[in-house]
Design a protein around this nucleic acid. Structure first.
Lengths: 344, 344
DNA sequence: TTGAAAGCGCTAACAC
DNA sequence: GTGTTAGCGCTTTCAA
């Protein structure tokens, strides 16, 4: 609700003494214009402080040049940094970003999905962590997920989670750990980092110890839950692979409180390697996800979908074999890197 | 560019066998409708998977129910968390947020300002750190800044920075520090945290030592610059007040590398107290800003401005005295709190 | 209770 | 080169 109401094309046209079309033309630099006209219009625009109403422009052109990003919360460094990378990648294509923080609530995620469709964003990138909403399957617009398989038909970009899990676990064993525990937000057969952890331990003939603290646990309760898990296992472990860096930080704090020296008494390795955690905890050994590559790839896929409005059908039907092929191609994985610190 | 093109009001009307108006009415629940009509229309909407085009709605109603937030980058926990708090506060008023990361570049900030005005957001919250852009003064819509004085006529919300600076410095002295240094992003008479630091030292008759590492220094270079500053002053200091927590973390890492034990050899206190840093570095003594209160207040002020489209003139003129009074009322400050850790 | 019609600000044929 | 005009999808008088 612009207050003394923004000037419109008509105002500019009147001020410059030309027609609407002419103004529109100089704005979009289309068609033939005399230099004199251009100057007149430019002066009027300048004088009125006119800025084209993108809303009206979108209504006509059907393109809002906006994409929606759904994440649990940009308050977490991983998603904050991801959002920035995506914004930068989009900017190169002339797109902007509408960020939606689902806060892990599926009702909010559903609302945001409606909102984005209602606002006719040109596409959606979803990096939320919720149980899968049916709503996604009725989305008729370009859609890409990050680190989340919604359906084999929806393209997905992620890092090599399983390889990362293996890398982390092996790193602990290489350092001499004999009983490395896994601390993760949800133990599950599809938890690929966990799968990597288990596979390395299996090869080594070591029994896995899996500790769980749910992803959406309120920050104040986390240290308590983490301590409970760890206290319960303290005799059996000599290392922890935390599947995210902040959980690793909680392990470190627990060790400090229990007078365990790191890495002598306990080795710790994290996962993510965000810039923020690396600033806050430069000594943390961790597995870094290539956020920039994930973001660029997700945007690239989205841009392809936008450019080629092919049927975007995700509703069964079609050649099952072709679908299968497509499904494989639709998941893109990027390698992770080990970042050495002194905690492992 | 919704691909098989989203259904429109007209589609629903046709499907339901009623007029556009009727559909619009049931959508907005306005006027008298027979239950039968309501049901018919509801069925059609359901069947088509219709979602109102908010773009068109905005074009007419002049309200986009969106506000723009400009911050340096949500990749920093302070701004990430601020963005989430603002989003939550806005949601209670039925508003959404368009997040713009200026990345500290004034050209980007300028572009975003144009974008927001062009998109007819209903208001803007600016928490960017750039040198002040003239563009802000030509903004004709509700505008609130966070921790940034743009002009005495633009409302500003912030924490009690100077009191916070005093609190931090006094805490160091109370712990026994005799030569506390300040580490800040920009030393300046208007740097209120610095001012607080200086005032306490003055009372105590201690000479200030101010170290500077610019805000927008790339992450990789920061540890080097911090180390340079600190190495140069190492003989003269026994404590550091870092004006943000991540800088404090860098001080801690430097101390570790130099084999200085904290807090015995060096006391460290930070500023901000974001949730992320408290998770990563729970032992850090710091000054917490009440992000939730800042966010709520900024949104509240914005909502008031939106509700009362008073002249919103910021272009000189008017009674200077009244302006003066207003200017005072327009800055709202919230108290900070000391968070005890073991680093000081 | 319901419908027809006039815009909201802008773009894009299609004239002149 | 420049203007006229018909929409984009929706809301909202004003009639019926």
């Amino acid at each position: 609700m612009a207050q003394p109401s923004e000037p419109t094309l008509a105002d500019v046209a009147r001020e410059a003494g030309v027609s609407l079309t002419t103004v529109s033309r100089v704005l979009n630099n289309r068609g033939y214009l005399s230099q004199a006209t251009k100057d007149k219009v430019a002066a009027a625009i300048q004088h009125l402080g006119y800025r084209p109403n993108q809303v009206a422009r979108s209504l006509h052109g059907k393109s809002t040049q906006t994409i929606g990003l759904i994440v649990p919360t940009v308050a977490l460094p991983f998603f904050g940094e991801l959002a920035v990378e995506i914004e930068n990648a989009l900017a190169e294509h002339g797109y902007r970003i509408l960020i939606c923080n689902s806060m892990g609530r599926s009702d909010r995620e559903r609302d945001y999905l409606d909102l984005l469709v209602g606002n006719r964003v040109d596409g959606i990138i979803s990096g939320a962590h919720n149980e899968d909403l049916d709503e996604y399957h009725s989305i008729r617009m370009p859609l890409v997920t990050i680190d989340r398989t919604l359906s084999p038909r929806i393209p997905n970009v992620r890092c090599e989670n399983e390889a990362g899990g293996r890398m982390a676990t092996r790193r602990l064993l290489d350092a001499g750990a004999r009983r490395p525990a896994l601390l993760t937000s949800r133990s599950h057969p599809l938890n690929l980092r966990e799968r990597g952890y288990r596979s390395v331990l299996k090869e080594a003939g070591i029994e896995p110890i899996v500790l769980e603290v749910p992803f959406h646990t309120p920050a104040q309760e986390r240290p308590i839950l983490v301590a409970e898990c760890l206290d319960g296992a303290t005799e059996m472990i000599d290392a922890v692979f935390a599947t995210d860096d902040l959980a690793a930080a909680e392990v470190i704090e627990w060790a400090r409180q229990r007078d365990l020296e790191i890495p002598r008494d306990l080795r710790v390795i994290g996962f993510d390697g965000t810039g923020t955690v690396r600033r806050a905890l430069p000594g943390l050994t961790t597995i870094r996800q290539p956020l920039d590559l994930l973001a660029r790839k997700a945007v690239e896929i989205l841009m392809e979908q936008i450019a080629s409005p092919r049927s975007t059908k995700r509703d069964g039907g079609g050649d099952p074999l072709a679908d299968e092929d497509e499904a494989i191609a639709l998941t893109v994985e990027f390698p992770v890197t080990l970042i050495e610190g002194w905690t492992a």
